[in-house]
Lab assay of single mutants.
Amino acid sequence: SAVVMEEGSPGEVPVLVEPPGLEDVEAALGMDRRTDAYSRSSSVSSQEEKSLHAEELVGRGIPIERVVSSEGGRPSVDLSFQPSQPLSKSSSSPELQTLQDILGDPGDKADVGRLSPEVKARSQSGTLDGESAAWSASGEDSRGQPEGPLPSSSPRSPSGLRPRGYTISDSAPSRRGKRVERDALKSRATASNAEKVPGINPSFVFLQLYHSPFFGDESNKPILLPNESQSFERSVQLLDQIPSYDTHKIAVLYVGEGQSNSELAILSNEHGSYRYTEFLTGLGRLIELKDCQPDKVYLGGLDVCGEDGQFTYCWHDDIMQAVFHIATLMPTKDVDKHRCDKKRHLGNDFVSIVYNDSGEDFKLGTIKGQFNFVHVIVTPLDYECNLVSLQCRKDMEGLVDTSVAKIVSDRNLPFVARQMALHANMASQVHHSRSNPTDIYPSKWIARLRHIKRLRQRICEEAAYSNPSLPLVHPPSHSKAPAQTPAEPTPGYEVGQRKRLISSVEDFTEFV
């Protein structure tokens, strides 16, 4: 048969007729292969192709491409040299491709048809291009793949890379869960390890502090508590009631339409708007009261037996805890006409967050109470924005700035309102402590230090009264110190430094 060459192609190359033996071998191979691939376009007849790359030819070592076609129900084999250009295909004639002069020997084609199974398996396991790669995943090629499931790999992101949580363990979102698992493993320790309690022994800490320079003076030496005195035992138990972190309780009120001037209507609300609910979820963490331990979680007086509701929101960081007394989460009882059960919590909070959804101005004093010092007013606006402002009593104007209003988005509203309420509550605590000038409020841990110092002074006084020969370590507060001759004046800087060093040991009130 003659071949018409394309323009620009090399000279004529004689194409030899395939021997009958080659056709029989390739026909047997075509019957084993699956003929249901995917359909081509209507211009080209339905056909199945599979590209198999052999590394070497037997005796020649030339890479070839073998295409199996099922045109007219008769499979045909096409061998081509890759750099050459194939002729145009037609549905009426068999596929013809040019070969190099080196394939002119018909014996070479017979060798190609009689490829060993080793070469076929190696060509099938190679990388296939384009559409033949999808075909190689079918059941027909499963014989050339190794048996057994593939090893499982770690989760992959859409980009093909490992997620960040699997790369950096410290930033993994499941870090707290692993800590819980470690605690569970520790709890399952053997009885021999049960006595080993991690941490620092208080006796060891005391020993280090006792021999430090801070205890060089007799006034700073630790003293032993009497065991037989019940009054001192009660004082030590009272110390446990003062937490070592700051605590805040903040009221949250929802004002519906037409309720801006009605205290009873505001306290009777059992739910609010959708934006109000989203605002609550951002204030803190939802907790169930019956599962809380009052000595570990500050509840601000809420009952854990269901008297004040089942849930509330709280927030904490390293040095403070805040609980929100939310009116809509507290039960509304029919027998309580004046809502006294709610007001006994909300009316005693220094700061209230008022979500004013009424469309009218909310005035300070609508919720009557002796300790309502500051109101954080949240007014929802259009386009997911809110107006946040402050209202306070006249005696609080020096501590709280009420002249600045803020426009905040719904997303950042819980954070801004919480921070403003916490700052206002700190100012309210300082303002409330002014009624007792001898006990200015600095912080909870300073209050613990003052309680310890008062307890020490009482013990020293009782020891001096029981044994008059012992001198008083600290003179009583009601006694007057003996007159001392004025010492020589020293520079102001040295006096300030000495006073600062003494105050650092005794108390921190002056620095606050």
Rank of each mutant, 00 (worst) to 15 (best):
Ser219Tyr: 06
Asn220Pro: 14
Asn227Gly: 12
Glu228Pro: 07
Glu228His: 07
Phe232Leu: 14
Glu233Ala: 11
Arg234Phe: 05
Arg234Gln: 14
Ser235Leu: 13
Gln237Pro: 06
Leu239Trp: 08
Leu239Lys: 09
Pro243Lys: 06
Tyr245Lys: 14
Tyr245Ser: 06
Thr247Trp: 03
Tyr254Gly: 01
Gly258Cys: 04
Ala265Trp: 01
Ile266Phe: 03
Ser273Arg: 02
Arg275Ser: 01
Glu278Cys: 08
Glu278Thr: 06
Thr281Phe: 05
Gly282Cys: 03
Arg285Ser: 15
Leu289Gly: 13
Asp291Ile: 06
Asp295Met: 04
Lys296Gln: 04
Leu299Met: 08
Gly300Ile: 02
Cys305Gln: 13
Cys305Trp: 07
Gln310Cys: 13
Phe311Met: 06
Tyr313Lys: 05
Trp315Ile: 03
Trp315Cys: 04
Asp318Leu: 05
Thr328His: 03
Thr328Ile: 00
Leu329Trp: 04
Leu329Lys: 06
Met330Glu: 05
Met330Ile: 06
Lys333Thr: 13
Lys333His: 13
Asp334Gly: 11
Asp336Phe: 13
Lys337Arg: 10
Arg339Leu: 15
Arg339Lys: 08
Asp341Asn: 15
Arg344His: 08
His345Met: 13
His345Gly: 05
Asn348Gly: 15
Ser352Val: 15
Ile353Thr: 00
Val354Ile: 08
Asn356Gly: 00
Gly359Cys: 04
Gly359Asp: 03
Leu364Asp: 11
Gly365Asp: 13
Ile367Gln: 04
Asn372Arg: 02
Ile377His: 05
Thr379Cys: 07
Pro380Phe: 00
Leu381Phe: 04
Cys385Phe: 10
Cys385Glu: 10
Asn386Ser: 13
Leu387Arg: 06
Val388Gln: 02
Gln391His: 07
Gly398His: 11
Val400Ile: 08
Val404Ile: 09
Ala405Asn: 07
Ser409Pro: 02
Asn412Trp: 05
Pro414Cys: 03
Pro414Phe: 00
Phe415Cys: 03
Phe415His: 03
Ala417Pro: 01
Met420Ala: 07
Met420Asn: 02
Asn425Thr: 14
Val430Ala: 06
Val430Cys: 08
His432Val: 08
Asn436Val: 10
Pro442Ala: 07
Lys444Leu: 06
Leu449Ile: 05
His451Asn: 13
His451Leu: 13
Arg458Glu: 15
Ile459Asp: 05
Ile459Pro: 11
Glu461Met: 12
Ala464Glu: 10
Leu470Ile: 10
Leu472Ala: 15
Val473Asn: 15
Pro475Gln: 14
Pro476Asp: 15
Ala483Trp: 08
Pro486Cys: 07
Pro486Gln: 12
Glu488Asn: 10
Thr490Val: 13
Thr490Cys: 14
Thr490His: 12
Thr490Trp: 09
Glu494Arg: 09
Gly496Gln: 10
Arg498Ile: 09
Lys499Gln: 12
Arg500Gly: 13
Arg500Pro: 14
Ile502Tyr: 11
Glu506Gln: 06
